[in-house]
Structures are given as structure tokens and as C-alpha cells.
Design a binder for these strands. Structure first.
Lengths: 350, 350
DNA sequence: TTGTAAGCGTTATCAT
DNA sequence: ATGATAACGCTTACAA
């Protein structure tokens, strides 16, 4: 019974079904199912025949149907506060590489405009019964959210920073920031300003705090005592870097000879604004960032590099391994960072 | 009849089902289905009761099951050659706004690393029975692909340029490029170079060609005759802009006094490289791009602005309207562009 | 190796 | 307004 030709009432929307293939190949649907999924216990000749028929009919299994039958969607979700920013778009590409290689789909949940009511994501649209695992980018999750996720029992991992209560992958922010500040100290700078990430919002959660801490520690160890007002916040964007520079430069008194920025984008903002103010980089002002943004090399920006794509790729691999039954595959890991010397840092003017 | 507690053989992975809710509320599954979907013909009191029970149980409908029953996945696919480039990430954010507002999911198909074998996307992973509609970003589809898509009968639209045989949304590339070149001509430039997009690859398909054509037309009408070698190709990236500048500047003979770049990123590459070569912008060299990239304002880059997010948002709206039964909702449209004068263009030196 | 048939959780038709 | 119930297309014991 039932070829796609003689299909009933609701939607003819479904195309070629497994029954059509079975009928055309003269076998049962069970055998077709086994054959197309490459399962064993199908004779070579039968499989061959079925594959041919399936191909000629253009058969593709309905993901809804197999999802319903197996309880798996073969889709993993990526939760991101933004997509059009360097870290996030790179991470998405990295995750996608692994997903593509292992034949999974990628469902993107962007908090961008609608960050406020992320509640909804956890209730309706999202997560629940739509994805097999969740990759969270640079966000802290609330207690409730984590609990909710935990209850659903889907593998979960956070990329881009430390977050309590669950596995995470990211660079050692303390070490990375320390390296950056120490580089400035080593060059002989004593008046070092800081443009850090906002730690009011949950974006990047711990990350800003840790980087600030590292700055303070390195400064203290070097016997340096930054001016109040030389610590400005930003939100990791170019624009906020520009603003921060202006606030620092408009301060009365002497100027810093170097600025450490918690992201390359902010560093670029500082550099553009410095240029506008006629401040020579690195002659009068050294600038260092963190990230190694796509534009950093072209701008000659000295930075501490990280690779969000690799981080997300690894995280995705762990998620998929866990789904493949490798219990314990998902675990925290520290990603590498590396100081890259370029043209925006130099010893302070004598 | 089954509560999630007494569930059989395969996976207990499924959580609370509609039956659980029905049982707890003392109604049939049919009524629960109507109630939770906000359908009419449910008495207020019944609905209220059901909603309460559903909420307390944390019930969420299985997308696989409803997908199977309705033939709709409530997911639209976005096909992009890259995600970590300005146009694409912005477009994704724009599409997401509309999708989120209308409670659809977003499935991302990135051709990034694996662009070569995009075949697979159309066969296996993708499209077929996984998504209700497809948004294509800046790519030409082959005849077979289009036919395939057409056969599946899912709404389809292309954003970011003209493509034959299907609806598309994008700026008028000819007009936009003309405005840019004309701006240089109006400033008095006669020696105008071009850094255009690659038209070998299918990325942006028609777009590069049309922009080149506009350049030629405007030049000819102005009675200008560009040097051979002043036309360099790029691939829309910063790096390729740098390379192009070097190739142009290394040419023997006189230098152009202005360069029109087919994208802001390439324009930035030209500017960075010009700075490195000690060429003053706009003193010795005017530079104009197309896009109005996030960084363009900070860099003072004169450009012809476009808004990929708005384009994708509109395209998505059309797709969803079509799915809502508004036949003919999907149709081609021209998006706006606007010349933005900033600091990288000026009259040529006397 | 292959077939039979019972689910999987919804939705939608048809009664009531 | 509500309830039975038959699909939806696939997977997977279990039987053959």
C-alpha cells in the first residue's frame, strides 16, 4: 500500500518515501532502511540494487520521521550572543567544519537583537527535542538555564571562556592577558592603560574580570601603579575602543605610553582614534590587543592570538563523540594562545 | 496509553509527551494539541487548565513528531559560501531577526571549507525534507541545483545579487558602482584604477561583472581611458586588496590618483598597504569602496553603503509569507544603496 | 539475510 | 467544544 502517488488527505508535500523505494526494489522497507544507512546484514547485491533505485528515485529519508523513530535529530545547536563579530563567526565556521564532516546539521540560535528574552529560547523554539547537543559561545548561563539543560540531558559545552558548572573550552585568559601586559612592561613602559571588556553584561562572563585581574597583578609585580581613569571599559567592539581612547586622552595630566586592550577590535578603535588625534603609534603610544583578528596582521597590530575556530571545532568534536557513546568525551580544555609581535608596540620614547 | 514513565524499548530520551499532558489534564491529546497551539474551538477554561498542566510538566512538542505530521519543519535554511565575512554574517543576523520574530528555526549551511563538494548538500544533509524554505546568500546555483530545488518545491530566494531563474534581492550593482566611480570623476580624477571582485568563482556571480561594466561605462563616458594593469582582481577580502595595491603600485609609469574597490574590505587593504608604502590617502590617492563595513566609519572610508541585514530580513519575510500561503510573496526586489562621503576621497593633487 | 509489525509523538479528519 | 483514530515515514525488535 501507499506509493507517493496514492497518498492520502494531508499534504502531498512529502515526496519519495521509503515505501516507494521498497516497492520499486521489491524488498521491504526494513531492508531499504538498513541498506541506505550502510548497516550490515544486507547482501551486497540487494544493497546495490536498493542504492540504485533510491538514487534514481531521488530518495532522501525524512529527518522528521527518522528523528521521531530514533529520538535523534542529528542537529546540534549553537547559541551565540552575536554572529557578526569576529570571535563568533569564526567559532561557527570551526564548529561547522566538524559538523559537516560528521554529517550533522547546524541550528543557529542568535541572541543578537532579542538577547533580552532569551527565556523563550529555552522554552519554546529551542533546545528541547530539536537538537542533540548544544554549543554555547561566550556566554554565562543562569542557574535555571543550566538546570533546564541538564534535565533535558543533552551534552553541553561552552566555548570562549570559563563558566562554572559545565565543561568549557577557551584560552587561559589570565595567562594571555599577563603575557600582553608583561610585553609592554618588558619594553620599558610604566604608564600602561587598560581597555577591558564590559563585565556588566553576561557576554564573555568571566573573561573580562580575569583579564583585568591579570593586568593588575602584572602591574603590581612590576611595581607600577596605574592612574585612576586609565582603566576604561569597552564591549569588545571597535567603536567602544574609540570611545575609550578618547576618554583616556581627554584626562588631564600625563598620558599613558601604552594601552592594553582586551580585544583586537578595541585596539583597532584605539589606533584609529589615536591617528585622528595625531598620536603616533607606536612612537608615542604602544597598543596591544588579544585575538589576532583577521585585520590585525594588515594593521600590524601586536596581539595575543587565539583561534576560536579551533576551539569550537574541538568542542564540537567532543559533543559528537559523546553522542556517539563515548561517555566523558565532553570535558574542559585550555586552548592555546600566542604573543605575536608586530608594529604597534615599541619602547617608550626616551 | 503511555506515560513517559512506562515507556518501551527504545530510548526514554523523549521526555514529556502530549499524552502525559492529556492524562494529567483529563482531556484527549487532540484537545491538548489544539490548546497549546492556540487554535480556536477550545473552551477558555479547558485551555487554561491545559496550559497550566503543560507548563508545570515542562511540556514542549516534539518537532520531529509535528514535522512528520504536518510536513513542515518550521526551519528555514541559509546557504552561505562563508559566515565570517561581513556581508554574510550581517545577512544571517538580519534573517534571524525575522525568523525569531515568527518563531522559525535557522539551519545554517556553510560552504566555507567544503565548498568544492557542495553536491552533497543537495543530496544528503540538506534541503530535502529538512527545511521549509531556502535563503541563498550571494551565490549562483547551477542549473541542476535550481532544478533540484524547484522539484522539491520549496520557496527559494537569493540575497546579495542578481541570479537568473529565481527571485533575488540586492542592490543595483551597476548603479552603485557607477555612483562610486562618478564620485571620483567628479572630484577631478582622471587616472582611476579598479580593484574588482573575482568573477572566476561563483561567489557573487554576476556582481563582479556588473561592477566592472559600470566602471568601464563611467570611464568611457567621462572620456577616460584607464591604463592596462590598473584593473586588478581581488576576492573581496582585505588581503586581496593589499595584493592588488601592490600590483598596481609596482607597475612602471605613472600612478593612478584614485582607486575604486568593489568592496570596503579590499579598499581597507589598499589603504593599509598605501600607508605602508608611504602613500598619503587621500592626498596622493583617493580610495572608495562599496558596502559600508563596520570598520569603514572608523577608518573614514568613503563608500557606497548597503545593508545586507535588511536585504536578508526582507527576503526572509517573503519566504515566510509564501509559506503562510501568500502565493507570490517571494519576488525580486532592489535594495537601496547610498554614497557616503568620508575622508578617503579628495580632489587629485594639482 | 530478509520481512513483519509495533512503535515514535504529533496532527487532522470525522464523529459526537 | 471534545474525543477517537488514522495517518505521517522511519527504525528496530523479533520472527522467519
Amino acid at each position: 500500500m501507499a506509493g507517493s502517488s496514492e497518498r492520502s488527505q494531508r499534504g502531498g508535500h512529502t515526496g519519495i518515501s521509503i515505501e516507494d523505494v521498497a516497492a520499486a526494489a521489491g524488498v521491504s522497507t526494513a531492508t531499504v532502511s538498513r541498506a541506505v544507512r550502510g548497516l550490515p546484514k544486507v547482501s551486497p547485491v540487494t544493497r546495490q540494487k536498493i542504492l540504485e533505485v533510491a538514487a534514481s528515485l531521488g530518495y532522501v529519508a525524512s529527518s522528521s520521521a527518522s528523528g521521531l523513530a530514533t529520538g535523534r535529530t542529528r542537529t546540534i545547536g549553537i547559541l551565540a550572543p552575536f554572529v557578526s563579530r569576529w570571535f563568533f563567526s569564526k567559532a561557527i565556521e570551526g564548529a561547522d567544519r566538524e559538523l559537516y564532516a560528521r554529517n550533522y546539521n547546524l541550528s543557529l540560535y542568535n541572541l543578537g537583537g532579542h538577547g533580552g528574552n532569551r527565556v523563550r529560547l529555552f522554552d519554546k523554539t529551542m533546545v528541547y527535542k530539536q537538537i542533540d547537543a548544544l554549543l554555547v559561545l561566550c556566554m554565562a548561563l543562569s542557574h535555571e538555564e543550566l538546570e533546564h539543560l541538564h534535565k533535558i540531558e543533552i551534552p553541553l559545552i561552552v566555548v570562549g571562556g570559563h563558566v562554572e558548572e559545565c565543561s568549557y573550552i577557551g584560552i587561559d585568559d589570565y595567562a594571555a592577558a599577563s603575557v600582553a601586559v608583561q610585553h609592554l612592561v618588558d619594553l620599558g613602559h610604566r604608564d600602561i592603560a587598560l581597555v577591558h571588556g564590559d563585565n556588566q553584561t553576561d557576554l564573555n562572563f568571566d573573561v573580562p574580570r580575569v583579564r583585568i585581574l591579570a593586568y593588575h597583578d602584572v602591574m603590581r609585580k612590576a611595581g607600577l601603579d596605574p592612574q585612576p581613569g586609565w582603566e576604561q571599559w569597552g564591549d569588545f567592539t571597535l567603536l567602544s575602543g574609540q570611545d575609550a581612547f578618547r576618554r583616556i586622552w581627554n584626562l588631564p595630566g600625563r598620558k599613558p605610553t601604552a594601552i592594553f586592550c582586551a580585544s583586537d577590535e578595541m585596539a583597532m578603535g584605539v589606533i584609529f582614534e589615536a591617528a585622528r588625534a595625531g598620536v603616533n603609534v607606536p612612537g608615542e603610544l604602544s597598543v596591544i590587543g588579544i585575538d589576532d583578528h583577521d585585520f590585525s596582521e594588515a594593521m600590524g597590530l601586536t596581539t595575543v592570538a587565539q583561534r576560536p575556530d579551533e576551539q569550537a571545532e574541538l568542542a564540537t568534536k567532543m559533543l559528537l563523540d559523546e553522542l556517539d557513546g563515548h561517555v566523558g568525551a565532553v570535558k574542559s580544555a585550555v586552548a592555546r594562545h600566542e604573543l605575536i609581535l608586530r608594529a604597534t608596540t615599541a619602547p617608550p620614547r626616551a
